[in-house]
């Protein structure tokens, strides 16, 4: 495929992200207004950060006037999962690709864009990433603006329904490979079960969602890699993910 075709495919695949981001950032816009941010500040935060949990946490820090160091540390902890995602993504980038693409692609490592990127068979084209980013970033930024200027523009029902768009996308990434591989199916079921337990059990439920993702990812993927090492032949060129 040509660069333009990859870009177009990215735009098309990115539409669920656009819808989901619109809904989530809409609620972020409302929260930002309550925290005392101006429309410009909220939009600037969304455009430069492109991260949901980190931004919601930032509102508390800004409202509470905590220190910049606390802000930096909180973002580091909450967003550390991106580090794992970038590491996984690094294996899908061709060594022949001009290096500067990596700097731009880095900006687009979000839970959702990562979900789409790992779904690509073999190596990923940077133009595919740019296609996704070109709809995802405006969705996130525009939704923030809508939320802050008019919290009552979209009915609550619509926001509630749109909020599952992103999860539907994740499900579409993890379920088909689960059908083909019992190991992956087992990993998905265990992950969801433990994740549920982490949000309900005493003590464990005190852990933030960012940390829950990091802990479970390291433990479950770590154990799975030990018990079921992926054979080279399975993973060459066309990987399942």
């Amino acid at each position: 495929m040509s660069k333009i075709q990859y870009f177009k495919k990215g735009v098309k695949d990115g539409i669920p992200i656009f819808l989901g981001y619109l809904a989530v950032s809409f609620t972020f816009g409302i929260a930002a207004k309550n925290a005392g941010l101006s429309a410009l500040e909220a939009v600037l935060m969304s455009a430069t950060n492109l991260t949901s949990a980190g931004q919601f946490a930032a509102l508390d820090i800004v409202a509470g006037a905590l220190s910049y160091v606390e802000m930096a540390f909180t973002q580091l902890i909450i967003n550390l999962r991106y580090c794992l995602m970038s590491s996984a993504l690094s294996q899908k980038i061709s060594q022949k690709m001009p290096f500067w693409h990596r700097f731009i692609m880095s900006f687009g490592v979000t839970d959702e864009i990562f979900g789409l990127s790992v779904n690509v068979k073999g190596k990923i084209s940077p133009f595919y990433s740019y296609g996704i980013m070109s709809v995802a970033i405006p969705g996130w930024t525009f939704g923030t603006l809508l939320g802050i200027i008019s919290g009552s523009l979209l009915p609550a029902r619509v926001i509630s329904a749109l909020s599952v768009a992103l999860y539907g996308m994740f499900i579409a990434v993890i379920i088909p490979p689960s059908r083909k591989s019992k190991i992956i199916a087992g990993i998905v079921i265990i992950s969801m079960t433990l994740s549920f337990a982490f949000t309900k059990l005493p003590l464990l439920k005190e852990i933030s969602s960012g940390f829950r993702i990091i802990i479970l990812t390291i433990v479950i993927a770590g154990v799975a890699a030990y018990l079921f090492p992926v054979k080279d032949t399975e993973n060459k060129g066309e990987s399942e993910v």
Binding site: I187, S209, R212, A225, V241
Partner: peptide, 25 residues
């Protein structure tokens, strides 16, 4: 290599559930 291969499945599964039932009305 195996660890990074499994990372997306775990991460996406953990992010999906139970969050999908908590964000809705």
């Amino acid at each position: 290599k195996s660890f990074l291969y499994y990372v997306p499945f775990v991460t996406l599964a953990v992010m999906t559930f139970p969050d999908i039932i908590e964000g809705t009305a």
